[in-house]
Simulated assay, not measured.
Amino acid sequence: MTQQDIQDQTGWRGSREVWLDAARAALIDHGIDAVKVQPLATGLGLSRTSFYWFFKDRAALLQALQDDWEAANTQALVSAAAAYAATIPEAVLNVISVFLDAQGFSPRYDMAVRGWAHRDAQVAARVSAADDRRLAAIREMFLRFGFDAGEADVRARTIYLVQIGYIALQTEETLADRMARIPAYVQTFAGQPPSVADLARFHARHGGAGGGP
């Protein structure tokens, strides 16, 4: 690779991550119609031809956006549901934590992709598959703690559909209100209250976070 090649990849052409970050921001802020090569190039101060160094075409960028969304949002939830917990209340708090972590699951990203899915059957199918994967992960969490299949399914749906409702309604809560509701949410979702130690760890982890139950 020549020095010019290196400069082309890391200099004025930008990078794959730069273009993908710009596409993600455009999708979240303005919807899928804003994810077009020329407006992205203009916003980045790069040439339109720079885009094609990293992506074959717009369709490739849109595919990369879907992959990115799954890697960020879906994987965060799946990993949390599989994380170690000594009790089911602690496991439920692990899942709730995903929706409060600004560095993990992004509610606005989820909303944007779901809005896109209303206009694109392929994206709709992918969102449906992601929902199934997320629900399966939470269901498996309950199964690990001895719940039967039917109850595990209903409890998983209760957690997940409540959270999606929070996102869809763009619910806003003060930190005090949100944290005050956590023990009752856990009691409802798990059928058992969290311990004082569970809540202390949760508060220490999310003292200033926000985003849902």
Rank of each mutant, 00 (worst) to 15 (best):
W69A: 05
A180V: 03
R24A: 02
R58K: 15
Y160G: 00
L61I: 04
R157Q: 14
V95W: 05
S97K: 04
R24M: 06
P107F: 12
F202D: 05
A23Q: 07
R144T: 00
G207W: 15
I138Q: 09
L46E: 04
R108N: 12
A82F: 00
S128K: 10
L20A: 03
Q75W: 00
I88S: 04
R201C: 07
A82H: 13
Q9T: 01
H30E: 03
F55S: 03
V92S: 05
E70M: 00
L161M: 12
D131P: 00
R139W: 06
W69C: 01
F145I: 05
L20I: 00
A112C: 03
L44Y: 08
W53S: 09
G191P: 05
D21L: 00
D33M: 10
A23T: 05
P39W: 08
G208K: 13
L100R: 12
W69G: 01
A204T: 10
N73M: 01
F54S: 07
A112S: 05
V92M: 09
G207L: 13
G191W: 10
Q63P: 01
A80S: 11
K56L: 12
G146N: 07
R119Y: 11
A81P: 14
A23W: 10
V98D: 08
I159L: 13
V127F: 07
L169I: 02
